[in-house]
Structure formats: structure tokens, C-alpha cells
Design a protein around this nucleic acid. Structure first.
Lengths: 187, 187
DNA sequence: ATTTTAATTCGACGCTTGTCAAATCAAAAA
DNA sequence: TTTTTGATTTGACAAGCGTCGAATTAAAAT
């Protein structure tokens, strides 16, 4: 698999391009293929420095080298420069998953508000309230119809303010109430 | 003028994108807009660190922030990600000129081989020979016809090996010789 | 064989950057 | 008003990176 197709490879490519000296080198070579000494003279840098930059640009595939007599002549690989930023930045799910514990925030909120299975406090912030109520609604079976009394009994396990919980579940559209009968919504 | 249109601006943009953590942030936000705390929990980094990265991404315009209650919710500015690498890398002549002394290599070669107006040695390498001969051929007027004797007199000012110089000028196609008459080529 | 020339490698130096803890801010909740 | 909560700033530390001089290598000219 091509290096520039995974997370680190993509970061490398963009990092290699993210330096003003290397952008200049790239443009000078784009005008016409050139060798290291020439670039060193033009940019007023030492050959060692130029070599360092050329190595980076070659490693990520935007430059290709070809021997000519003494010289190592570099030219631009247009193919590598075709994709848009969008194309390059877009990571596959496999690249994101190992680095990001996507539900970490959710779990953190749950840990904060549930102690020993009970809700210590009903979150004021909507985002957090939503997360907590989604957790609670799991106690209701889909499809099944509940009376308000049955609902209250279940909710009482979580918090004494069952009215607030009921209101939340309805307004967040996690449950419906028609004529006093409650039902869990499953989308 | 937009910042991302000059050398340093372009380098900044690419540098901002050239880091694996920031690529992950960008992808997480692309799935859906998110706020700092959430990203910190997901990526297992401290809020201060996330803030640092978000600032960089916002400064170069790939993220936009919007307040929502407590939160500062970030979303991706697709517009900024449209251009291809090629588009971004391409610098204007005004950006290149101040940094690159484009004729520096040429001048360096001339300085090396000319001492007090005379050619100390005829360069063996074609590239350098070419540069030196282009300098010498300037002594001939365009259009005008020269006999070999006239050519020799001029060349003698530069180097005793006038035969080699004549040969070089012809083979490098800087002059023509037809029936013993020499003429400078101007393209 | 010796010398020249371009390129590369290595080690060193200083500047930049990523990360965090602690302090501070700003906005909303209690 | 006082507390809570998310965001930012500051300072510190370590890791990374750009630059150079010196030594080395590779190829070609003398």
C-alpha cells in the first residue's frame, strides 16, 4: 500500500510541503529541472541544507531524481500534486479508530452523572442531558406500551424527580405519550 | 490580499495540516461539528493542547468557530480545502524573486573561470562550458559576418586555445560557420 | 593515479513546536 | 451572587527540525 494513504504518510506529505524553502525549491525545479549545487547558489544555502530538503521532498514522492553526468537532476512529479487538500485530508475509518476513542466524551459524561446506577443530578446542558437520557431509555423495551405508573417505577430507580425525567424523554423525542400511554421510540 | 496567497501564507497552511493530531481533529469535525472538550476526551489530550491545535487550524482558515451556549463549536470550511496541492504550491514570480537570486549559479561559474577578463581554463563540464561560451559570444555583433581570422583575434583576448573556443561555439550552436564565414546566432 | 566536483552523512547548535499543569476568562446555571 | 464549565493563556519542558561545517563518497576530468 502506498505510504501516502495512511495517517502518518499523509501528515508527512503535508509537512514536507509546509516550509517556505521547500516551496521555493519546488517552484525553481518546476521552471526547469535542476541539480543541488545550482539550488544552493540560487537560494544562498549550503549544499548540505539543500540535500536535506531534497531528501524530504523525494521521500514523499513530489520530486524524482535522475543522474546526469556528475549531477543528480531533480524534477517535479506532477502526479503527486494532483489531489486536492480535501482528498488528502480525508482519512479512512481504520485510520481514525485506533487513535480516537470516539465515545470517550459520552462515557465521560455518563461517569460524571451516574453514581452506583443512580443519576446524581439531571444535567442542565442539553448535550449532556441527551446523553444521560439515551442511557436511561435503554431500560424500556421497544414496541411495548407503558402506563405512566409503570414509567414512574422504572425512572424512580434513577432519580426522584421522575416528572423531570419524563418531560426530558418526551421533549428529546426518545419516548412518545399518546392518551397516557408511553412508548419508546426506536429509530 | 488573502494571506494564503503569498509564500509564507501557503507554507503556514500546509504546515498547519502537516500533523497527525490535527488531521484527526479535522476528520472528527468533518463527521460532525464538535467542541474542544469533546475532542480532548476523544483524542485523550488535554484541553490546552486541543485549543492550541484548533487555533492553528482556525488561523489558516480551514476551521470556523461558532458559539453555542457554553461551547465553541468548530466546523470545517470546505472552501479552503478545494484547491489541489499543485494550485497551492504554485508561487508567483513576485514571491520567488526576492528569495532566489536566480542567476547566482551562472554568476558563480563566471566568477570561477574568468580572471581579469580572461578565461583561466575551458570548463570540461558541458553545463559550465555553455555558460562561459554564452558570455564570450556577447563580444560578437549579431548579423555581422566574421572571417576566421577576425574570430581568432576576438577569442584570443579570452584564451590562447582559440581552436577549442571556436569548436565550442559551433557545437553549442552559438555561432554558425558556412564556407569559412562565421556568424553569431541570436534566437 | 591524482584531482576536481557534486552529493551525502554526521554531529552540533539554536530555534520552533507539541504537550501539559496552573492560572485566568467568559458565559451560563444554581 | 456564587458556582460550574468550557476555553484560553502562560510558562516550562522535551522533542523535532533547519542550518551549517567537516568528513566521506562517487563519478568524471586531468
Amino acid at each position: 500500500m502506498n505510504k501516502s494513504e495512511n495517517l502518518e504518510g499523509k501528515a508527512e506529505l503535508l509537512k514536507a510541503l509546509g516550509h517556505s524553502t521547500r516551496l521555493l525549491i519546488l517552484n525553481l525545479i518546476r521552471m526547469k529541472p535542476r541539480h543541488g549545487e545550482e539550488l544552493a547558489a540560487i537560494l544562498n544555502l549550503k549544499p548540505a541544507t539543500i540535500s536535506h530538503h531534497l531528501t524530504k521532498l523525494t521521500n514523499v514522492g513530489v520530486l524524482v531524481a535522475e543522474k546526469d553526468q556528475y549531477y543528480q537532476v531533480f524534477s517535479v512529479n506532477q502526479h503527486a500534486l494532483k489531489p486536492s487538500l480535501s482528498d488528502i485530508i480525508h482519512l479512512s475509518q481504520q485510520d481514525i479508530m485506533p487513535n480516537a476513542e470516539v465515545d470517550a466524551y459520552r462515557e465521560k459524561v455518563v461517569k460524571t452523572f451516574f453514581k452506583l446506577g443512580r443519576l446524581t443530578k439531571i444535567p442542565a446542558q442539553l448535550k449532556k442531558q441527551r446523553i444521560v437520557l439515551e442511557k436511561i431509555v435503554e431500560e424500556f423495551e421497544p414496541e411495548r406500551e407503558y402506563t405512566e405508573r409503570e414509567v414512574n417505577i422504572i425512572l424512580l430507580d434513577f432519580n426522584d424527580d421522575v416528572a423531570a425525567l419524563r418531560r426530558g424523554l418526551i421533549s428529546q423525542k426518545l419516548m412518545t405519550r399518546v392518551k397516557g400511554i408511553y412508548q419508546r421510540i426506536t429509530e
